[in-house]
Amino acid sequence: MDMKDFISGANTLGESRTPFIFVIDFELTKPFLCTVRNALKKNIFFKIGKIGNYRKSLKRDQKISLDISPISYKKYKVAFDKVVQQILEGNTYLLNLTFPTEIKTEYRLKEFFHFSRAPYKLFFNEQFIVFSPECFVKTQSDYIYSYPMKGTINAALPDAARLILENKKEEWEHNTIVDLIRNDLALVSKDITVTKFRFLSEIFTSQKNLLQVSSEIRGMLPTNWQETIGEILIKLLPAGSISGAPKQKTLQIIKQVEQTNRGYFSGIFGIFDGENIDSAVTIRFIEKNGDGLQFRSGGGITANSNPLHEYNEMIDKVYVPIR
């Protein structure tokens, strides 16, 4: 399916208010679409907000230990330095730099899917799984909402909430993403408002609990927006929080420094329930790579980023969230 087919297919389902699932890759080259009714037949399991198509996840109380082999710091630093040079030249303000990390484990993809706890989960036909904490967009009565997430801290640190909220570098990066998402929502809706600014939420992982900083941004959609749902989704992509700003120039730089395509990682997936959209950014992502598995992760690079800190953050994000 190419983007043109995706748009017309989504618009048709939107117009007839037929529930469907969508999965779109970062490069916008292999979008996927199927009705909710057909998802199981295509070996797709999901939980998106309150809606899912499988029975309760398996309980698991022990930690899941992963044997991980990230890229070397030396290799990471080469890419990082190129990004910082581009920031100094004014070509980007914020760029999300990501790399794959090989993981070795006794578990299979399906088991990871069932063990993990997250508001947004997807098992995509033995190719990859996602357990994403980050909403991309959702709609409710002709309003569209986005929840960019920028800023993470170990919740166990003393005074963690104050530390992250008062950290200037985190604040500047968050500001940038808020302005970028306001812009993106204005492509498809009007009267853009930041309805919540820098609120905290907690994430439970197998290693530690994290505090994440998010904002809520709202725009007003035209009535009967469901009939153009395909265009609406595509205009918003790739998601600002995992690309950067200014988006177009930043995407060119990502291509140069990451060198491989991201594929479904850092794309989006979601559901149209017949009336509304709920969707997630495809992060916290494990995919099959030949005989092995790889986890993909990264973080936002700005003028104030420290390379070792960013490298460690990329590795810290290689986790499976269990209760």
Binding site: D184, A186, P246, K247
Partner: peptide, 15 residues
């Protein structure tokens, strides 16, 4: 100029 803040200007002006 291929910017990512242009539509923030648009959103203000169309009010």
């Amino acid at each position: 100029n291929n910017d990512s803040f242009t539509y923030n200007i648009v959103d203000y002006l169309r009010r």
